[in-house]
């Protein structure tokens, strides 16, 4: 396992040195600042119009979901864009040759890289969720329910995107890999919203299309479950708001996403061990 930790360490340091990470941190910081300002002015407006505390709580909780959703999108994009060339790019440049001829197994190289990126994304998700949670707490006094569970589900979504990126990187060039993974995430995004509309309109055909999309790539389903977990019990009954859920993905779907991730991970290891470098 020594090789795994050496690779994880160098990958984490490599990932954190990339400009995209700093861009994502800057974007996240700018977003949190704007978000805090918006929440502050909205809280003042709600107070000025004497909105009843219960309604005020529900409105502000819903807007907090926007913050978490932005954190989710930034984290997923970061997971994909930082790791998109880690395998394919190093094969193309020949960097991998100096590593793969050392006394470490290829599976150790791949797992080490995965852990390195997973660590970097964990820090980012933690920072963003802590930021949005703090804004909610300080500006509005709202404590987001089950924020750790929501953060864990979003992190799982990032790991799923990361694993798919690493897996496709063992087959395709950097550019093709990026197109495939972002395309898959796009399918999941559309599918997730189709499922919500299906639940609202009670359309079984739409629901089937949505479920098939989520089965193809269950990443967005994880966000919907995370969002569901972080809503107040009243908001859950409201059915549909832009960032809340009419239909929460089941625990089975979460299990499916975990199995999907594990199969993708095993496939990535197998193909990386077997392929020519």
């Amino acid at each position: 396992m020594r090789g795994v930790w050496i690779m994880a360490d160098v990958t984490f340091r490599e990932a954190t040195r990339r400009k995209i990470v700093w861009a994502a941190l800057l974007a996240g910081g700018a977003f949190l600042t704007l978000f805090a300002a918006a929440m502050h002015f909205q809280a003042k407006d709600l107070a000025r119009y004497n909105v009843p505390p219960f309604i005020r709580y529900q409105v502000q909780s819903s807007i907090l979901q926007v913050g978490f959703y932005a954190a989710d999108v930034l984290a997923v994009l970061l997971a994909i864009l930082t790791s998109v060339d880690t395998i394919s790019g190093e094969i193309a440049s020949g960097t991998i040759h100096a590593i793969a001829t050392k006394p470490v197994s290829r599976w150790q190289i791949l797992i080490g890289k995965w852990i390195g990126f997973a660590g970097m994304v964990a820090v980012y998700v933690a920072l963003m969720f802590a930021g949005v949670g703090m804004v909610g707490r300080v500006v509005t006094g709202i404590v987001t329910p089950r924020i750790f569970l929501g953060g864990a589900l979003v992190y799982l979504e990032c790991l799923l995107a990361l694993t798919m990126t690493v897996m496709c990187g063992t087959w395709f060039s950097t550019l093709t890999n990026g197109v495939i993974v972002i395309g898959l995430h796009g399918i999941a995004f559309i599918g997730g919203w189709i499922e919500q509309i299906a639940a609202l309109t009670n359309s079984p055909h739409l629901a089937t299309v949505g479920i098939i999309s989520s089965l193809l790539m269950p990443s967005e389903a994880l966000w919907h479950r995370a969002s569901f977990e972080m809503q107040s019990s009243f908001a859950r009954t409201l059915q549909f708001t832009p960032f809340a859920n009419a239909s929460a993905p089941s625990v089975t779907m979460i299990g499916y996403a975990v199995a999907y991730l594990m199969i993708a991970f095993a496939t990535a290891i197998h193909h990386f061990c077997e392929r020519d470098l």
Partner: peptide, 15 residues
């Protein structure tokens, strides 16, 4: 056996 092998690739590149 790779413990006993050294390799300089053509056009060496690294991080």
């Amino acid at each position: 056996i790779r413990r006993k092998i050294g390799f300089l690739p053509e056009d060496f590149r690294f991080y």
